[in-house]
Nucleic acid binder design. Structure first.
Length: 419
DNA sequence: TCTGGGGTCCTAGGACCC
DNA sequence: TCTGGGGTCCTAGGACCC
């Protein structure tokens, strides 16, 4: 290998949510391993969250796909065992894996809850990358109980594509000279960043494999896809050079919270209440991160055809007050809503900045008092649980006073046994 | 009683300024 | 005889990822 070449590993947990759940259950006396039977992690159908979030390999053999409605999956496989999602458990497993990987390199990038990049250039064992990857794979399996697929290459894109080549519990290399043999025969949809829309357009152009994309005329792609075309061509040719960086993903650009309401919302008041429950969580997350926002957005998903639309506004002075954000959300909603039944509502804040030395306008000074209340409520909720303080207008509403997020550590039983 | 919830980045078009 | 052209900011929507 060239001396200035990097050595990058991509570590991908196999059927992550399902594996985490399976390991947890085995450790708590369950005798059946969910990974050995047709099973899936799925949301509750009663509350209209019924989609497949992760599936076992036996379930995959029935043609069950991640993201498909649970009822549809059951038609394919009536004996499918489903378990509810447990995000706190996933975070715990994620952190455990991260700690383990830090033993092999401090250049580590969290890519998602179940994916990591590791730059092991110059680290002990890097002269034998396959052996090193197998050591990591075995250690994870032994210490944490779940399996991973590891891809090895000289950049992140190829390492990621490499980890897809063989699973579960496997290691693959995908160095540049191996691209034509290992990557080019694959369907173009397998390329990272080729989604539904791009796949459709490429197929129309007669491009069906990663290889034919790689050998397509770059100017033609630029003409058809603009800057996207260059990226597609680069990726198909294995060209990518970003660093394994812990900071790149650490700086959050926005904080959002959204929910599928378990009934169709058909009036303003109910919609406002749902928005408030979403803002409560967003506001709390902002204040915990020490951030203020300047852009506030709401989104609406129609019940009848599941289409989305959104409305946003930018304000001059950054804010982090739940009440202030809620006022803007109500306004945005009223301006945007066409009166049709709503299935899903979302709130998102962005253009974030550190919450220091904010110059308040006269108008916004009114919210200064509110800020004191926000913080007090945050602290009580942290200490006594999210349900300890709720706004009185939720009392008879049948709605949860706080939707989504933040359940992470606070309400979760300690699980030291997993390690 | 049909499709979750968390993100990021890019682009087109309008408003507005010089 | 009146409409050029560049730049910035903002919003809506689309694409992708897990």
């Amino acid at each position: 290998m060239n001396s200035n070449e990097r050595l990058i590993l991509h570590i991908d947990v196999n059927s992550a949510f399902l594996s985490f759940e399976a390991v947890y259950r085995l450790q708590h006396g369950e005798t059946v391993d969910l990974r050995d039977i047709p099973s899936a992690v799925a949301g509750s159908q009663a509350t209209r969250h019924g989609i497949i979030l992760a599936k076992s390999i036996p379930a995959k053999k029935y043609g069950i796909k991640t993201g498909e409605p649970t009822w549809e999956a059951r038609q394919k496989c009536p004996q499918l065992v489903t378990v509810p999602p447990n995000y706190a458990l996933y975070m715990f497993c994620h952190n455990s894996l991260k700690e383990l990987l830090k033993n092999f390199s401090d250049r580590i990038q969290v890519f998602s809850v179940d994916e990591f990049f590791l730059d092991v250039t110059g680290m002990p064992g890097a002269d034998q990358p396959l052996e090193l990857a197998h050591i990591i794979r075995k250690r994870i399996k032994k210490k944490l109980g779940f399996t991973v697929s590891i891809g090895i290459s000289s950049n992140k894109l190829l390492a990621k594509m490499g980890s897809e080549l063989k699973k579960p519990d496997a290691v693959s290399t995908l160095f540049p000279p191996e691209i034509p043999g290992k990557m080019w025969p694959l369907p173009v949809e397998d390329l990272y960043m080729v989604g539904r829309a791009t796949s459709l357009k490429l197929r129309k152009m007669g491009i069906g494999t990663i290889g034919s994309l790689a050998n397509c005329d770059l100017e033609l792609l630029k003409y058809k896809f603009k800057s996207w075309g260059k990226l597609l061509w680069d990726y198909a040719n294995g060209i990518e050079s970003s660093a394994v960086s812990s900071s790149s993903r650490d700086t959050v650009k926005g904080i959002g919270n959204s929910t599928t309401v378990h009934f169709d919302v058909e009036d303003r008041r109910t919609a406002h209440q749902v928005l408030l429950s979403l803002v409560e969580t967003v506001g709390m997350r902002m204040r915990f991160s020490g951030l203020c926002c300047r852009v506030i957005a709401i989104s609406i998903r129609r019940a009848e055809d599941l289409t989305f639309y959104s409305h946003q506004l930018k304000i001059q002075t950054p804010i982090d007050s739940t009440t202030a954000i809620y006022e803007y959300c109500k306004r945005l909603f009223d301006e945007a809503w066409g009166g049709e039944p709503i299935r899903h509502l979302g709130v998102r804040v962005s253009d974030l900045s550190p919450a220091v030395h904010i110059q308040l306008s006269m108008f916004e000074k009114e919210w200064e008092k509110q800020k004191v209340i926000d913080r007090a409520v945050d602290q009580i909720r942290m200490k006594f649980g999210p349900g300890s303080v709720i706004r009185s207008n939720f009392l008879w509403s049948g709605l949860a006073p706080m939707e989504g997020g933040l359940s992470d550590d606070a309400s979760y039983p300690v699980m030291t046994s997993i390690l």
